[in-house]
């Protein structure tokens, strides 16, 4: 379970203060996939980083229960000069997992072939996302924080991700942010829309879509 209590976050820009999250409170219960829709720059990634705990809100607090992943996205989390395998070993260590098992799982899932042993800086953004995805799947999280990343790669890899999540539905759920309604629809039955610092909840994707398209 994740609970947001009156989260406020703003950034200083040249044009003044930009309030990205304005007094946002919410509860995301465990066991249910949930989507957050927002346009580019609406603050989706910021929200996800605050939820995961890598960034701090200006005000408010986040209550987390269960094991929650780092924000899975295109960027961040990997050291460019080390290989995919070395990065996996590091992550396995800091999460206290069996290193060999994690490496084996990530190799197999990410389908990077020889690239797995090459420095991350030689990867395309799609390959990085695949590695992040395979790696996170090797660790049993209760909630996966996903930042657009499933929209990556070919149809077959997308399908593989979806199946992997379906398989572990009983013990894990997904909290996903995206600007793309289609991606959210594939995973979630309910969604919220992030717009101008406010998070509005809807009981179905259909209702969310009405608000989002408007």
């Amino acid at each position: 379970m994740i609970e947001l209590r009156r989260i406020t976050k703003s950034y200083k820009t040249e044009k003044g203060i930009n309030v990205v999250l304005d007094d946002v409170s919410a509860i995301f219960p465990k066991g249910e996939n949930f989507g957050i829709l927002g346009r580019n720059g609406a603050g989706k990634s910021t929200l996800l980083r605050i939820i995961s705990g890598v960034e701090m809100p200006d005000y408010g607090e986040v209550v987390r229960k269960g094991r929650i992943s780092w924000p899975l996205g295109f960027s961040g989390g990997f050291n460019g000069s080390l290989s995919g395998e070395e990065n996996c070993r590091f992550v396995a260590r800091i999460y206290g997992e069996d290193i060999d098992r994690v490496v084996e799982f990530a190799t197999e899932f990410s389908e990077l072939g020889q690239y797995f042993h090459m420095p991350i800086r030689t990867y395309s953004s799609g390959m990085k996302a695949r590695l992040a995805f395979g790696l996170s799947m090797a660790i049993d999280f209760n909630i996966y924080l996903v930042d657009e990343v499933t929209a990556v790669g070919d149809k077959r890899f997308q399908e593989k991700c979806r199946l992997a999540f379906e398989e572990r539905q009983a013990r894990s759920s997904v909290l996903m942010v995206s600007h793309n309604l289609k991606t959210i629809t594939q995973y979630c039955k309910r969604a919220a829309v992030l717009d101008q610092g406010k998070l509005t909840f809807y009981d179905s994707i259909k209702e969310a879509r009405l608000h989002y398209d408007a």
């Binding site: 890598v54 924000p71 961040g76 989390g77 999460y95």
Partner: peptide, 11 residues
């Protein structure tokens, strides 16, 4: 030089 590592909440 290690910003990437701060992507993991426990670091």
């Amino acid at each position: 030089s290690n910003k990437a590592l701060l992507f993991y909440p426990q670091v």
